[in-house]
Simulated scan of single mutants.
Amino acid sequence: MANLAGINLALQTPFSEDGTVDYKTWERLIDQYIEAGVQGLVLGSGTGQHPYLAEEECDELYRIGIRQIDGRCNAICQSSALNFDEVIRRSKKADALGANALMILPPYLEGPSDDDGLLEFYREIDGQVGVDIIGYNIPQATGISVSPDLYLRLNGLRNFNYIKDSAGDLTTHQRYLQGGGKVLNGCDTTTVYALMAGAVGAIWGGANFAPLESVALYGHVAEGRYAEALALWKRMLPAMLHIWTHDYVPCVVAAAHHRGFGTGNVRKPLRSIDQTGKDELLVALAPLLEGGK
Rank of each mutant, 00 (worst) to 15 (best):
D18F: 13
Y136F: 12
L289N: 04
G219C: 04
T171A: 14
K164C: 03
G198E: 00
T25S: 12
M103W: 06
L152H: 07
R72S: 05
A284F: 08
Y23P: 00
L152S: 13
V252Y: 07
H242L: 04
Q78C: 15
G224E: 03
G264H: 06
P107F: 05
P107E: 01
Y108F: 15
D95M: 15
N185R: 03
G117P: 05
E110Y: 15
G181T: 00
V283Q: 14
N74Y: 06
R90S: 06
A199Q: 01
A5C: 11
D279S: 14
L61Y: 05
I273P: 13
S45W: 05
L118V: 00
T20Y: 09
C77H: 08
C77D: 02
I134H: 07
R267M: 10
A216Q: 13
S113A: 14
Q128C: 11
L157G: 08
F84P: 02
D31H: 07
D149A: 15
N137T: 00
Y218I: 03
P148C: 11
L285A: 05
A227C: 06
G40F: 11
D70L: 09
A229L: 11
D126K: 09
A141R: 13
G19S: 11
G46H: 11
R267S: 12
G71L: 09
A255L: 02
C58V: 05
Y226I: 15
V131F: 10
E213N: 07
D18K: 14
E223P: 01
V87C: 12
L97H: 04
V283K: 15
C58G: 11
Q12W: 04
A81C: 08
W204D: 08
G65V: 08
T20D: 07
R123G: 08
R90T: 01
D169Y: 10
A54F: 14
T191P: 07
E35V: 01
D59E: 12
Q78S: 15
N74G: 09
K92Y: 06
G206C: 13
D169L: 10
L82R: 08
V249M: 00
H246V: 00
V131T: 11
L97W: 03
A239E: 00
I125Y: 05
R28A: 15
E55A: 15
G6F: 11
G65F: 11
F84T: 00
V131H: 07
P51K: 05
L285V: 01
M1H: 15
A284T: 00
T47S: 14
N137L: 02
I76A: 05
Q32N: 12
A284L: 05
P148G: 10
Q128H: 14
Y248M: 09
G262H: 07
D165R: 07
R123L: 09
A207K: 02
L53F: 12
Q39C: 10
Y193M: 12
P211N: 10
L157S: 05
T13W: 09
E280N: 09
K182E: 09
A227F: 11
L270D: 00
E57G: 03
L11P: 06
E35P: 01
D116N: 10
Q174P: 05
C77R: 07
I133T: 03
S79H: 06
D114S: 06
P107V: 02
E86R: 14
A222P: 01
D70R: 12
Y162R: 05
I243G: 06
A256Y: 06
